[in-house]
Design a binder for these strands. Sequence first.
DNA 1: CGGGTCATTGACGTATGTCAAAGGCCGTGG
DNA 2: CCACGGCCTTTGACATACGTCAATGACCCG
Lengths: 247, 247
Amino acid sequence: MQQFVDRLLERSSLDRAATDALLAVPGRCLQIRAHVDIVAPGEAPTAAFLVLDGLVGRFGQVVDGRRQITGLHIPGDMCNLPALVVPSGSAYQALAASTIFRIANRDLSVLLRDHPLIGVAFWRACAVEASILAQWLVNIGRRNAQSRLAHLLCEMAVRMEEAKLGTRGAFTLDASQNALGDALGLTAVHVNRTLRALREQGLVAIDGRSVHIPNWAGLATLGEFDETYLLPGMRANAAIERPWVPA
Amino acid sequence: MQQFVDRLLERSSLDRAATDALLAVPGRCLQIRAHVDIVAPGEAPTAAFLVLDGLVGRFGQVVDGRRQITGLHIPGDMCNLPALVVPSGSAYQALAASTIFRIANRDLSVLLRDHPLIGVAFWRACAVEASILAQWLVNIGRRNAQSRLAHLLCEMAVRMEEAKLGTRGAFTLDASQNALGDALGLTAVHVNRTLRALREQGLVAIDGRSVHIPNWAGLATLGEFDETYLLPGMRANAAIERPWVPA
DNA sequence: CGGGTCATTGACGTATGTCAAAGGCCGTGG
DNA sequence: CCACGGCCTTTGACATACGTCAATGACCCG
């Protein structure tokens, strides 16, 4: 839980009571194998969950069974937060063997009632998620396969780095090529070919699940990647940009 | 302003003081012509704005100048709300001649400070927007042109109906085929061909800017449209689903 | 040992993009 | 008031990025 709270504190100010309450929130640890749904499509959401280890994807599906991944969550990310304010939810699946910490919505609700600052922090977390979603939309809607892949790799690189799970030059991404295709609106075989093309240009080297980016500038240029939307190191800018904080 | 408050009340409970404060919030009316940016790409957001008339699009762009529309806002929609909690914002453009009511972020902030219920209502509005975004992502990522168009038309139909600006069988959508292409990740000419195909199947009839849907069931089936994600008539379900409300 | 997921590669098909041209409509300026 | 230019729609011929189908081998977990 500490990891998640630290992440929250990067972007929002919380008083001591709020962080203590968060750290003490009740919940259960669960081990989930790859490919099993954590929240099934259409299921009414009753809990949020924190990713402790592994990789989980938020997804939607179309009638013929194909899936579109609409979000990738790495350790330290809280999933299903929007379900606190909206009755309909998303489906989630573990893309690799993962362990999660499940927190019932009603337990989170009492936190929100007692600590208004937590509400703002959660709202902000949802806004960042939406910002990522919008980027994915322009990525899928308007870029070709190479740029799409490059953009996604850049995004995951800076998110992993910010989560202190690696550096942008070397990190591990626990997703199969099939999963990457589902995230990019591509086929697994086309992901494979595209990956090869990137490798042949010396932009990325993938060995198993570990990603190396020897030429960050090249990859970022190809993917037209501008990390601003991820709000990196927002705390540092706090004196300049002053988002709303309740009195 | 009344229209927006009514919309908010559909989904959230606000006390009398909060609605009065919202109705009295200061702002300026602006007339915007088609194709002019309301918020330019990269511009730091300093205000939210309510659409009073017309149609405005949220968008991102890629280097070669092509655009991807990431949100369509009809009269009664409040734009740029996430910018209240997050420093980076989106770009917005009027897709048709529009009139908007611009509200400075700092004026909105004092509302949030004085009325916690408004914060929850805004958070919820952002969550619905994100939910739409996720749907668009699966739409663009995994469906062909006909299904995409059908889905978008269905979505706008129920949103227009809910805003009391028409019925799902007949409403007016002030977007050019070019704009539709930008929203769907398609070319204007392919939108044209796809529209013709839908017309020949008797699913839609578009005359100028007015859309008729003679076969709703057929169009919804083709677009695999399930309106749950738009939270229609959520107030009616309030007794069953109980999203969080501060004490 | 055996079934499943995963990566890789080839041949081939197709949905969608690109380029080009024409006409209608509308706002704008002369 | 008229003429001009620009935006919008429509259509055709052609190009291509990506999907589909298929087969192989490696690896892992049970």
